[in-house]
Design a protein around this nucleic acid. Sequence first.
DNA 1: AAAATATTCAATAATTATATTGAATACTTG
DNA 2: CAAGTATTCAATATAATTATTGAATATTTT
Lengths: 220, 220
Amino acid sequence: MNKREFKDRVYGELARITKSMANPHRLEIIELLAQGEFSVEQIAVEINLSVANTSQHLQILKEAHLAEIHRQGNFIYYRLSNKNVFLAWKALRELGVERIAAIERLVKEFRESNFKLEPITLDELLKKIESGKVTLLDVRPEKEFKNGHIANAVSIPVDELKKRMPELPRRTEIIVYCRGPFCVYADEAVAILNKTGFKATRLEEGFPDWSLKGLPVDVS
Amino acid sequence: MNKREFKDRVYGELARITKSMANPHRLEIIELLAQGEFSVEQIAVEINLSVANTSQHLQILKEAHLAEIHRQGNFIYYRLSNKNVFLAWKALRELGVERIAAIERLVKEFRESNFKLEPITLDELLKKIESGKVTLLDVRPEKEFKNGHIANAVSIPVDELKKRMPELPRRTEIIVYCRGPFCVYADEAVAILNKTGFKATRLEEGFPDWSLKGLPVDVS
DNA sequence: AAAATATTCAATAATTATATTGAATACTTG
DNA sequence: CAAGTATTCAATATAATTATTGAATATTTT
């Protein structure tokens, strides 16, 4: 094997992995799987694609060793095969948000037009936690919360929020988080809460970003 | 803009960036540009592609805002537009090396069959520097060395090494580095040095990895 | 201003990626 | 073991990516 052949093969393999991520649906799947494992149909519903098409995208992730499966009854559950998959997605996400003005504009526009709200970053949250009392509210589906959440966070899935608001404190600041920066659950929750007189702000990042930093996590 | 439309557009943009990296030649270009700026022809020679074809790949990187240009006379120089581009490449590289056994095997096979040598990692090097004396040898082309190198490293481009060996110490251990883990210059240099009685080892990572960690760097 | 040089563009052909459809497979439940 | 459910497969059409070729453009030098 000469030098050129070696390089062609190494970069060829790396491009194969990169290609397996290089599709909007597959990126969305990766972000979803960062919350835990999901069946093919659950994934299809979440990302709004036919089951057959979703399955094909999942095959591609599996063949690239980014996702792995386990079977339980009729269902096949997919999960990310490793922390590094999320790390690579996170690096691409941050590159995108920083490099492509269009993305930042999109996110801002969407938030402002629909919710008129500024999020706080993870680093700002950490300072806030040190210096005072905040309530952390996890508005993802309960399954995802049980799978892992920020230590001491309260779980109220966004679609139960309206009837379960009494469980929340009216005085202390509420920080709402969900799956990640492009997840809308937290925005919806913050809008509902603020309209009802709570003092709520969304966290820019999601649970996986918190977890990755080695910050305290609870499971239940 | 509804929720689905928002997601489609955000993930669409992110996939566009990811696609712009998802090609063997473009990954190789990114790794090269992590060393500094190069003209189109220089890049074409390094990655063994026609100038026209190289130019087209460079357009794609430029349109995705991963690379930017500046003109100097007849030449157009390309560089990475930002540290985050290297960070994303590094994350993909590490994901690849960890997930795809084929890559690790390739690298190992190639090194062993051609050079029979084990590299040391950046972290091991840092410990070694603390605890004793080592000579750091940069074997990249001189222009890249001048553009930035590990503090106190000596520059001898690999193709001048045979005649310039007297400049190197015979007793202290020599750590040789180059562009990155898939760059072969350091392997070639270590083979030459060890055959002549020096005590040389290659650094697994390259200069950009060192620089990224905020470790001391010299320019000249 | 003409010649020389570096780069880009445009057109083409070949390959690869994607979504859709309906059938096939694998497992569970009655 | 038949019926039901979840997933995958196979075939197809459309679209996107890639390499190659030769011409066009932009800048410098003569």
